[in-house]
Design a protein around this nucleic acid. Sequence first.
DNA 1: GCTTCCCCAA
Length: 736
Amino acid sequence: MLLRTVSAATAETNVATVINKNFFDLFKRSTSLSHLTQTHAQIILHGFQYDISLLTKLTQRLSDLGAMYYARDIFLSVQKPDVFLFNVLMRGFSKNESPHTSLSVFTHLRKSTDLKPNSTTYTYAISAASGFRDERVARVVHGQAVVDGFDSELHVGSNIVKMYFKFSRVEDARKVFDRMPEKDAVSWNTMLSGYRENEMYEESIQELRLGMQIHSLATKTGCYSHDFVLTVAYNAMIHGYTSNGDTELSLSLFREMVLSGARLNSNTVVSLIPVSSHLMLVYAIHGFSLKSNFLSHASVSTSLTTVYSKLNEIESAREIFDESPDKSLASWNAMISGYTQNGLTDDAISLFKEMQKSEFSPNPITITCILSACAQLGTLSLGKWVHGLVKSTDFESSIYVSTALIGMYAKCGSIAEAHRLFDVMPKKNEVTWNTMISGYGLHGHGHEALDIFSEMLNSGIAPTPVTFLCVLYACSHAGLVKEGDEIFSSMIHQYGFEPSVKHYACMVDILGRAGHLQRALQFIETMPGDPDPSVWQTLLGACRIHKDTNLARTVSEKLFELDPDNVGYHVLLSNIHSADRNYPQAATVRQTAKNRKLAKAPGYTLIEIGETPHVFTSGDQSHPQAKAIYEKLEKLEGKMREAGYQPETELALHDVEEEERELMVKFHSERLAIAFGLIATEPGTEIRIIKNLRVCLDCHTVTKLISKITERVIVVRDANRFHHFKDGVCSCGDYW
DNA sequence: GCTTCCCCAA
């Protein structure tokens, strides 16, 4: 009987062990708050709510996801928390930007319990103290570490060194470091990067040499083996120079590293990769990684994917991605982001869908990328779906995600929804404000943009150079010349920002669009340094709007000089000549373009009916309902002619006969999309279309008329702004 | 290691 009881108890213990292990597996796979909540429920259901190891793990995972209130509640539910649980909670608060709370947990541990802090406790206490503004807190915690005898311990010591560097107390950092009896790769690294962050490059390099001497001494005498010190130190140095953009030093250190016989590892490659401004260099690093079998490391392949994407080598990026055997969540994100940044939004979205079938779940970074893709593409339906996904997780708390959501709604035409989200965001950073300002700019709502800007200033957020770009951009699209002028000068005199070429281009745009062509020209002539093509191109655009052929000729000559291979200049200039009815001249320019094998980007328009996107090109016959669409257009045209409409074709292709030219304009992709929208939706429904190029003058007129005839609101996003057509009027006030 | 905002032009 006794025997049976004992074995039953053993069996029970075994079962408990198994279940316990299962919970740890569950934790590992819980990537969202809702997963964790379910796991917690399971723990209670199985009667493990007092199992401190499980609760500690739960606290840790909750902290990782930023759910600190929840984590604290778990902590409070434990009758007798041990020092491990205290440590986990301190780490959580530290990680989630609450160093104050972390330190009060620490104080509670020391003052109100009989537990003894261990070295891990001090590691977290020190990093919490580093998060304070006041370095006196740091000194107090350092003092406590001395009292408890942990200040010279390897990890604590390294953290104290790091902390003093953070407060730029280089001397103190040095003292603590020198007193540490044992040093490892991490502590050396801390010392090196500390010097570097305090811009003491000389000291940093000396330290590296010292590390090398110790290394060689150690190897010779066999006293102790710091095998990785040298590798780690070199990696840290290379990484530092690389991220400072100092390619030369970074590469020469790498060479030195190879010559010194130090072992290279995958981190060496990763440290070197952002050097990358030259494709040849990336190829070299790629080849080297291949030879050394570093490509199997997710960190290496992810870095290479990223750098290839940044150099617009998207196929190479995809190759690396496809061939990397050990993908991480970051690998997927890097590839999706690569597609997004290269404008390959369809590929980004389909890879995202593929990812959802894989073992990886999207994280806030993935969501941010995919929202950016939706914004570029203008697919409101997908954007809304992603928004739903965001709501069901706790990704909304990520400032990146919520900012990207605002951008998505603004760029997909729902400026009101964007503003609603903006209003309820508890924490905004400068990018959030910039997004909202440029959103209003995009819709031509200049005054609203200026309101947001002054709200930003009032709430104490410092504007950045990008903020001024967004504001100036909004001014230019709303014709606010005086305001733009004032803001430009306040940027320089009040905020002390040196205007960049982009700022100058914005000002030229403001002046030029408003018809002040001579002032715009003077503006360019007074700008410091050589104006780049973008500035001239802006002025050329203004010449086109205001039909100033003489200035256009001068400007285009500048442009040919600066950038002879650009298609845009040829097209634009030829359009200017045809606007001037100087067809022979226009034909010459076009011929030049043709001779150089330069082609105009084809225009297309997207319309979503329900969840289905439909894409039209000019004169497109491929749509299943093409016949009905063309009939609809014919009918509409009849009604428009009755209302006195005359086609304006002066900005279209000119090297064809008048009648033929009219035909080509007549079937521009946006008209086909609008006609299809009229057929495929209920009367009264708003029609939203997205065009890759700017809408032409004639199509603009026609859309106004269609909105009146059919009593529909038509929202058009063109290459750089929104037009809301209603009752025969456009929100841009014909100013675009 | 991977993320949000940024002139013009087509």
